[in-house]
Write a protein that binds this DNA or RNA. Structure first.
Lengths: 217, 217
DNA sequence: TAGATTGTTAATCGATTAACAATC
DNA sequence: TAGATTGTTAATCGATTAACAATC
């Protein structure tokens, strides 16, 4: 099974390739060279060729890459060729907003359940899906073969909930809580730390201003 | 003004240090060594010391780092010691969810306005702030000295809106639209590409399953 | 003073870019 | 066949880790 380990940096770039190829496909572009793509994406052509060759030779000398083919192949690599049932755990503002994100469905991420710890929310429907209590979770996850959980609970509740999710067979947590979850081998965590992203923005803003103090008259 | 350029990797780690130090502070921990912090954060002590020394010598030999002092200093570096008025542009589900994120206010990010292009939304209040139309934006931004815009419009509208924002003095865009914005020098973009994050999760999930096919009986 | 721990230099590791032979 | 462009090796660049002298 020993596939050559692919670096995280490469993986993080794959969805962006996928997005650009999707746009080219919509524009009915049939083929593209690494050089042309590199100009669009503002990366080096060398990087594109290196990245893609981690997964196989998708191109053809003298021709470039077939857009449709490459798009499909990257989709497969990203696991977008199968349907992933998902649940949202935490039906607050963010949880509800994500529940309404129809984009995900297009990529095979199918929301099948929404859960919360707050009894007040029980039975309220979000995009046609009724919010359930955590007590119903174990049965529901098994019944629906759910592997992905979106965790949008506040941080104090998120840690315990992660344990419950893992106990009940969840294999991947998309974590929006401001904590680092500690999970066993075989359970993946992908963090979206919004406040950290905003702080990075803030740093860059302050930084730029400091560097250009002299510019002002 | 020529400060040594600090790498993006370091910047991305700063908010995480800030978060851990904040937690230590809450737990009334007075000092911590790079070694102890490294165990908590699961990074090397060497990296912590290297990272911090980009900004100055915050520690003391034989003692370690004073938690409160270091927390404050990193806060300053991140620009959290000043108030940043912000507007949300795009009052859909995600925009409204972010509007309700009180966490941000604690860090100095103050939501002052919400805008949308859809006339139906005009006047509706989200957390006490009435949604305004884009026509009111130029005056509002100047009046309130707004430098940060949260862009939560669909991608087809986001590009034009970014131009409008920049024309009206916005210096930083927190971009949730699935496009790469093209901005002039001096305007910062921080992307939150949710679908790309979810695809990364999907890749890792598929990958792990493939690598462990043999494990199943 | 002795022990602890930083700040910083040097060594290693990994990722990006450049170059070019292979080949469509 | 000639031109274009990939796949891939080699060179460069940057980031991480290790080591240790400086110093509290």
């Amino acid at each position: 099974m020993e596939a050559k380990q692919i670096s995280k940096a490469v993986i993080k770039r794959l969805p962006r390739y996928y997005r650009y190829l999707g746009e080219l496909l919509e524009d009915n572009v049939e083929r593209i060279s690494s050089n042309d793509l590199s100009k669009k994406m503002r990366v080096t052509a060398s990087q594109i060729r290196q990245d893609l060759n981690n997964f196989g030779g998708f191109g053809q000398q003298g021709y470039g890459y077939n857009v449709k083919y490459l798009y499909t192949e990257i989709g497969k690599i990203l696991g977008l060729d199968t349907v992933h049932p998902m649940v949202i755990v935490g039906a607050g503002n963010l949880g509800q907003a994500l529940a309404n994100y129809v984009e995900f469905e297009k990529r095979g991420f199918k929301l099948v359940g929404i859960f919360d710890v707050n009894p007040v929310l029980e039975g309220i429907a979000v995009r046609g899906i009724e919010i359930q209590m955590i007590s119903d979770l174990p049965f529901f996850l098994k019944e629906n073969n759910v592997e992905i959980a979106i965790l949008t609970l506040p941080k104090n509740k998120a840690i315990d909930m992660a344990d419950i999710l893992i106990e009940n067979g969840i294999k991947a947590i998309w974590n929006f809580a401001h904590v680092d979850l500690d999970t066993p081998d075989g359970v993946i965590v992908e963090n979206v730390h919004l406040s950290e992203s905003l702080m990075t923005l803030s740093y860059n803003l302050s930084q730029y201003r400091q560097e250009h103090v002299d510019d002002e008259k």
